[in-house]
Simulated assay, not measured.
Amino acid sequence: MQGLIGPPDYSQEPSRHPSLRINAKEPFNAEPTRENLISSYITPVEFFFKRNHGPIPLVDDISSYNVSIGGLMEKSVQLSLDDIKKLPKHNVTATLQCAGNRRTAMSNKKEVRGVGWDVAALSNAIWGGAKLCDALKLVGIEYNTKMTLSGGKHVEFISVDQCKEEDGGPYKASIPLHQASNPLSDVLLAYEMNGEVLNRDHGYPLRVVVPGVIGARSVKWLDRINIIEEECQGFFMAKDYKMFPPTVNWDNIIWSTRKPQMDFPVQCAICSLEDVNTVKPGQVTIAGYALSGGGRGIERVDISVDGGKTWIEASTYQKDNVQCIPYDISSDKWAWVFFKAVVGITEDTEIIAKAVDSSANVQPEHVETIWNLRGILNTSWHRVRLQIAS
């Protein structure tokens, strides 16, 4: 790619907010504190979680930057950033979530491989850019196309970064062509984040945002878009981010027996408390986030203050702190909701939160039932313990 260079080392990394919890330094992976995560419905860029697989690429000459669209179709194009900005601009509010969110709690049950994330490996932003479907029209691919005349069924995104998992090659991922060409999917070629130009950590000058899907498919630092016959065979599609049952281990794993993970399941977590807390008897605020993939909304969030014996329903809200109404057309369908409940505590107890989405999917009760060797998609009931101060 002209215009971009991938640094061979970590000597020119961007600066980051000092409050971030650093889970890995090289490559840099970090999440905000629980308190900072829910301080704002739209996550400030400095608190947005950072997920990387190599050094952060540097822009050499933005005037010569371009993205190619090619592969199994009748024609190909080279698009400059200005070309992309000439397409209709859309703003999409979407929460990106790492598939490894809450991995630490899973690894506490049994060892897994991967970056040790707490509950904050996700964030919410207003993404600005062109819809991918509009860019695909430039090469003759129309709305809800499932296959090109040349046999293309998937859209592959290739980055410019250098990943240790790809032996120094670029990060790759793909989504089905019918999803990429559907305007209702809101897949973006994003060049703005929260009304400002993307910064380096989050994909400058151009990234893909695939709402409702695990963050691994929202490729940053975009270089090429290819129309391909089968799913991308890069490491992160073929040999990572797949959901295996608890019986599979590193001795008997066969990667080809599972499809790459796309939509994320229903999820919630308490962020107003740590996993173990000492509090005074009285009123305690239980607050956090809930979300589900695929554009499914949150129907409700249930809170238990007695270890799951009884339940109450928390209030839920999105922007402007207005209580959510399920299926309300004014809601941000790709974004999280916040929940809140104020409860009275008089003795040591376990607080539990679980969410139900608009398709009546419910979080699993125990992490053991969804344990997997890569530690992805820990969506089990979130539990925190309260101890009364003596």
Rank of each mutant, 00 (worst) to 15 (best):
Y289S: 01
Q283F: 09
S304V: 01
G203Y: 03
K259F: 02
P260H: 07
L189I: 00
G114A: 06
Q162T: 15
F338K: 10
K109I: 14
Q323H: 11
E142V: 11
V59E: 13
F235A: 10
D263I: 12
H366M: 10
G288S: 01
I214W: 14
E165F: 14
W336L: 14
S174L: 01
I286S: 02
S292I: 02
S63P: 02
D83V: 03
I345V: 09
K172P: 06
N249C: 10
E229C: 12
A99H: 09
D328H: 05
K239L: 08
K172Y: 11
E192S: 12
S15M: 13
A105P: 01
R217F: 10
M106R: 00
Q78C: 11
G128C: 02
L198S: 08
W336Q: 15
S330Q: 11
T379N: 12
K85R: 15
I158S: 04
L4P: 04
Y171R: 09
L79E: 00
L96F: 07
A353Y: 02
S358G: 14
V139I: 08
G129L: 00
F339E: 05
S330L: 12
D118W: 10
M147E: 15
E230L: 13
P44R: 00
S40R: 04
E350Y: 02
S358Y: 10
L184P: 05
V301K: 06
L58E: 13
R51S: 13
W334R: 09
L291Y: 12
V92I: 14
G70F: 11
D348L: 07
G282M: 10
C163G: 07
S123D: 02
N66Q: 14
G344H: 14
E111R: 13
